[in-house]
Every structure is written in C-alpha cells, then in structure tokens.
C-alpha cells in the first residue's frame, strides 16, 4: 500500500508557488489583480456615486469631483470604472469556477465510462459547433438580463472545452501503472477518482480555468457592449464603452478608460495562464534553436 501511495503524483501546487514567487511578470500580474480586487471590494470608499446623473456637467473634462470627467449623462466616469471592476471580476471568477466544477465532473465521467464518454463527446461536438459568443448572446437575451444569467450564458459554451481536456487527461492517467495497481487492489470508485485520477488532471485544468476566466471577462464585456448583458444601469466596462459610442468622436477618452482597464485585466489573466502552462509543461522551456 505504501509503495502505491508514493507512486501517486504529488500535487503541483508547492513547487508552482515557489516558481511563481521568483517570476517578475507573474508578481506584477498578481499585484495588478490584487489591486483590482481591492478596488472592487472598497469601491464605495474609493469612488463617488456611479449612478448619480448630473445633466449640467455632461461630457465635462476632469475636475475635482470626477477625476476622469463625466459621461453623456453627467455620471462620474472614474466611479463607474471602479464599480465596473466588480462585474468583470465576478463574471471572470464565477465562470472559471463553474467551468471547472462542471467540466471536471463531466470530463472524469466521460474518461471513465466508455458509453457515457461517447455520448458526452458527441454532445460537446455539437455544442462546440455553435460559435460561443452567439450561444452566450442568445442565452443572455432569452433568459432576461441579470448577473447570474450572464454568468450562466458565458459558462455554458466554455464547459465543453474543459470536458474534452479533462477527458483526454483522464484517458492518459487511467492507463498509468499506479492507477491500474490501485484498481487491482480494489480501491473504490470515489477514492480512485479523488486520490489517483484528479491529481493528474489538476495542472491542465488550472491552465484552462485561467483561460476560461480571461475569455469570460471579454465575453461579459461583449454582452454589455451589445446591450444584451446586465442592465445598462449597473456600471460595467462593456456598458461604459457602449455608452461612449455616441460621443466617440468628441470624447474618445470615455472609450479609452474602460477599454484599457479591460485589456489590462485580460492581459494579466492570460499571462498568468501562459506562465502556469510553461511551468506545468517543462518540455516547452528546453527546446533547441536553429
């Protein structure tokens, strides 16, 4: 038993954290994310009222009360940008978590059950044949606008990708000696999955969850931008850009602030994902050059 225990691959979290601490790009991305999370939590302390309409100061330049100026309804752009952090982060993290939970559960099942696996594969084929953003737009518009709707609408097209990834990893892990050994000594189903199969999938799942988070943040902005996301009242970066369209030629900065914030957030998450995948796949770092 002890021999089999030691053959189980250790969770990659320990060395991963040590590696990440040494990397400047990762430190920078994490710092940026932490700042955004803090801004989202303490939005009422940092910024003024994002909903207050002040028609007298429409499209006004930066001033003491509104350091990034005011939009076409005279609302404080800085306050809206700070509150907009909440929607992006909430959608990004929730979609990553939902995708991981459902993707891993269905993927492990598909990897272990022969018939179930075939059915799941055909279903994911079909779902992935529908362009993700169209599926999300259709879901969001049909289910009526709301934060939860947006999260579900974006998560559903993301799940098949995770399912296929997890299944392919499980198929690989299943044939490894430590798993066949565990099966042969009669390890029960759940213990087998928990102790021997899940640890092997963790690395790729973590990377995929990071990418899902990044694409969910973009997707939620797209939905708000097209006017099918959460209510336009609620401050969101995509919604701010949609508002800025009408005044784009006169006040392009109104488009710039949310656009740059959105891009930086997605960039930070993507870089984290890239570094994670480099760390977990050491093959990539030692390649010969021409």
């Amino acid at each position: 038993m002890a021999i089999i225990e030691s053959a189980v691959p250790s969770h990659p979290v320990g060395p991963l954290l040590r590696h990440m601490g040494r990397n400047r790009a990762i430190t920078l991305c994490c710092l940026f994310l932490i700042v955004l999370v803090l801004l989202a939590i303490f939005a009422p302390v940092v910024a003024g009222d994002p909903l207050k309409i002040d028609p007298a100061h429409r499209l006004s330049s930066p001033e003491a009360g509104a350091i990034w100026g005011r939009d076409h309804l005279g609302r404080d752009v800085f306050a809206r940008a700070v509150y907009g952090t909440r929607v992006s982060l909430l959608v990004g993290f929730s979609v990553a978590i939902l995708t991981t939970v459902f993707g891993v559960a269905i993927g492990v099942y598909a990897g272990l059950s022969r018939i179930g696996g075939a059915i799941v594969m055909r279903l994911t084929d079909a779902m992935m044949a529908i362009p993700a953003i169209l599926l999300a737009i259709a879901f969001a518009s049909i289910l009526n606008a709301g934060l939860l709707t947006v999260i579900i609408a974006i998560a559903i097209p993301e799940i098949p990708r995770m399912v296929r990834l997890v299944r392919s990893v499980v198929l690989g892990v299943r044939s490894q000696p430590h798993v066949t050994a565990a099966i042969s000594i009669g390890t029960s189903g759940l213990a087998l999955i928990w102790r021997h199969i899940l640890p092997g999938t963790m690395g790729p799942v973590l990377v995929q969850a990071t990418y899902a988070c990044a694409s969910a943040i973009i997707a939620s902005a797209v939905l708000s931008f097209l006017g099918v996301g959460i209510s336009p009242e609620v401050p969101s970066w995509g919604g701010m850009m949609a508002d800025a369209r009408s005044t784009f030629r006169v006040q392009p900065v109104l488009m710039l602030y949310p656009g740059v914030l959105l891009s930086l957030l997605v960039l930070a998450v993507n870089i984290l994902g890239d570094r994670l995948s480099d760390t977990l796949d050491p093959r990539k770092s030692r390649r010969t050059s021409l």
Binding site: A214, G259, S263, N270
Partner: peptide, 11 residues
C-alpha cells in the same frame, strides 16, 4: 490576444 476586438476596433 488580450485586447478585446471592439477595443482594438475603436482604437
């Protein structure tokens, strides 16, 4: 890859 297409578009 990180800048959403509508942000690049407006830029």
């Amino acid at each position: 890859f990180s800048v959403p297409v509508f942000v690049i578009g407006y830029l």
